[in-house]
Amino acid sequence: MAFNRRKFMIKNASWMLILLLLLIWEIICVGLNVPEYLFPAPSAVWSAGIARWEPIMMHAWQTFFTTLVGFAIAVVVGVVLGVAVGTYPIVYKALYPLLVGFNSIPKVAFVPVLVVWFGIGTVPAILTAFLISFFPVLVNVAAGLATLEPELEDVLRSLGASKLDILRKVGLPRALPYFFASLKVAITLAFVGSVISETVASNMGIGYLMMAASSSMDMALVFAGLIVIGVMGVVMYELFAWMEKRFTRWANRGVNAAAV
């Protein structure tokens, strides 16, 4: 019985923590009589979400679409550049410092430029999601390829394997855990990029909805939008976590293995 209780606690720890936080949040707001326009209680956020379900879903699908498109582009570009950086030292020396410098620039600074180039709407949101999320993919893929032991490469070359054979049959499979780890980070950043652009230069999306709601002091709707973004991020994160376990089962260790 004790073992089953422990297993139940491990599997449901996140849900129990969420319920506890919601309960504390509700007690604070109701007990201290906090005005709804400052900090709405979870019950008020729930009511706002139910009352405005259709517009929330319309804007949520727009954000989801722009995020996935930008994320898909980021994955393709990140993998290609990551393979080049992790495989060829000359590409690493030439390109990596530029990429680090580019990644250091706040991506919100690019939004006005993108608006001038492409106008207000979906394209700047897609590009912002791409710009903010491709770097983790690049770095992790490059790191996965760069950790291939030189001795193993020497043995494979002595057996007649070409550089492409080593990359395809050993390097890329070894980089899979790094790749899926980067996807879990990049998808959350992609949502951040989309919402940032929508708050600045869009007439659709959750970011736009929250800006419109905050201008009318409808904080319950703002928090409902935040929760929707969080839920979408968690769903996509869990999807990639499931894919990681499925395709890199041999690399799973520690806490994840113990919790199964």
Score class of each variant (00 low, 15 high):
3 F>T: 15
4 N>V: 04
4 N>Q: 13
5 R>Y: 13
7 K>M: 11
7 K>N: 08
9 M>S: 14
10 I>W: 08
10 I>L: 06
11 K>P: 12
16 M>Q: 14
16 M>N: 11
22 L>Q: 02
29 C>R: 00
30 V>D: 09
35 P>E: 08
37 Y>M: 11
39 F>W: 14
44 A>G: 03
48 A>N: 04
52 R>F: 10
53 W>T: 11
55 P>C: 13
56 I>Q: 00
57 M>Q: 08
57 M>A: 08
59 H>F: 07
64 F>P: 04
65 F>Q: 15
71 F>S: 01
72 A>T: 13
74 A>K: 02
78 G>P: 03
80 V>R: 00
82 G>H: 10
85 V>P: 08
86 G>D: 06
87 T>A: 12
88 Y>N: 15
88 Y>F: 15
89 P>E: 12
91 V>E: 06
93 K>C: 03
94 A>D: 09
95 L>M: 13
96 Y>I: 03
97 P>I: 10
97 P>F: 13
102 F>H: 13
108 V>Y: 01
114 L>N: 00
116 V>Q: 10
116 V>A: 03
117 W>P: 05
117 W>I: 05
119 G>N: 04
119 G>Y: 09
125 A>E: 10
126 I>D: 06
127 L>R: 01
128 T>K: 00
130 F>V: 07
130 F>Y: 05
135 F>S: 05
135 F>T: 01
136 P>W: 09
137 V>F: 04
144 G>D: 01
144 G>F: 05
145 L>T: 06
147 T>L: 12
147 T>A: 09
147 T>P: 05
148 L>G: 06
150 P>H: 07
152 L>C: 12
152 L>E: 08
155 V>E: 01
156 L>G: 04
158 S>C: 14
159 L>R: 13
161 A>E: 08
161 A>H: 11
163 K>W: 10
164 L>A: 11
164 L>E: 08
165 D>G: 14
167 L>N: 04
169 K>T: 08
171 G>S: 04
174 R>D: 10
179 F>N: 02
181 A>F: 09
185 V>H: 02
188 T>N: 07
188 T>E: 01
191 F>G: 10
195 V>S: 03
198 E>G: 07
201 A>T: 07
202 S>H: 12
202 S>G: 05
205 G>D: 02
206 I>W: 00
207 G>N: 10
208 Y>N: 13
209 L>G: 08
210 M>D: 00
212 A>C: 12
218 D>P: 06
221 L>A: 02
222 V>G: 05
224 A>S: 06
226 L>I: 15
226 L>Y: 14
226 L>K: 03
229 I>W: 06
231 V>H: 11
232 M>N: 09
232 M>L: 15
233 G>N: 07
235 V>G: 09
238 E>V: 12
239 L>T: 13
243 M>P: 06
243 M>N: 04
247 F>C: 04
250 W>P: 07
251 A>F: 02
251 A>S: 09
254 G>R: 08
255 V>K: 11
260 V>D: 15
